[in-house]
Write a protein that binds this DNA or RNA. Structure first.
Lengths: 149, 149
DNA sequence: AAAGTATAGTTCGAAATCGCACTTTATGGA
DNA sequence: TCCATAAAGTGCGATTTCGAACTATACTTT
């Protein structure tokens, strides 16, 4: 008989909240001075899905208000890690491009994190991570849909 | 042979970050005006582990700076949801107590969230939540220890 | 008991977050 | 074409976050 206890969500979200803070701390310890997690998230996103994205597109991807994305991009521009150009297809919007410096910072941070994760991995059964990843993804997709619907 | 691919952490933390935002949005949609997630987290913590905790104890539990906890508690006090008294055992510290209003707000929010979670649960295999919860806890404990050591 | 060190909490200032209102440009009918 | 509506992005202000420095109290060592 399935348990179907909704308070399970409560407990899982609680753990997720704490893990988010812990993992953010690990990341930010490796970021150059003046950059915080949202900056890196954008650099990483642009690297993975390709640069030339629009701010609104990234705001939706990360589920943050567009004003927050404006602010984050402004910070990255101030550090010379991205640059923005008008979008020829749509006069309202702009596109965001990585600079060489932006790519370099992202690569450096990834490498530094590799060491941290190596250490974390040493004391943890990675098969358990393997096991939870698809479920977390499924849950995320499910909640995304519930939000839209 | 175990995979031992540290970038797994990267992907898992990415999902956790998005899930944190999504679940926070669900929670905050149910909170009374003027309260945000950290306020509720404190109300809930005091209910679960018992009130009379100290600010520093909660700051550690949630992995937030103690200055943030000071601010959060001040907000709850302003809303009359908690009150603080000196700690007779330690002149440096104070203890935080729930008021009746605080308990009531927490209960109302829990109830409202029940409906949300019920709906979420309808379209999701709760056995998968059951499966990931202990692993998330284990990971959280592991990272906590890695941070201290 | 005195001195040095550690801990709990606050104040302060800088930066981040985010809702609201606004401007500009696009789109989809009458 | 004209108009209404929607969408992209920004400016602004209130609140939040959080590190640094500080005060007050406790603990430890001699």
């Amino acid at each position: 008989m399935p348990e179907h206890n909704p308070s399970l969500f409560f407990e899982v979200f609680n753990e997720i909240g704490i893990l988010e803070q812990l993992s953010r701390a690990v990341l930010e310890a490796r970021l150059p001075h003046g950059l915080i997690a949202p900056h890196f998230t954008v650099l990483n996103h642009l690297t993975r899905v390709g640069d030339g994205r629009t701010p609104i597109e990234m705001a939706r991807a990360f589920q943050v208000p567009k004003t927050s994305m404006t602010h984050t991009i402004k910070g990255l521009e101030a550090h010379g890690l991205v640059e923005t150009r008008a979008n020829p297809q749509d006069g309202r919007s702009k596109r965001v491009w990585l600079t060489d410096a932006g790519r370099a910072v992202r690569a450096d941070v990834i490498q530094a994190l590799g060491a941290d994760f190596q250490e974390l991995a040493a004391g943890f059964d990675m098969r358990k991570l393997d096991a939870i990843k698809p479920i977390l993804t499924e849950l995320r997709v499910h909640m995304d849909q519930a939000r839209d619907g």
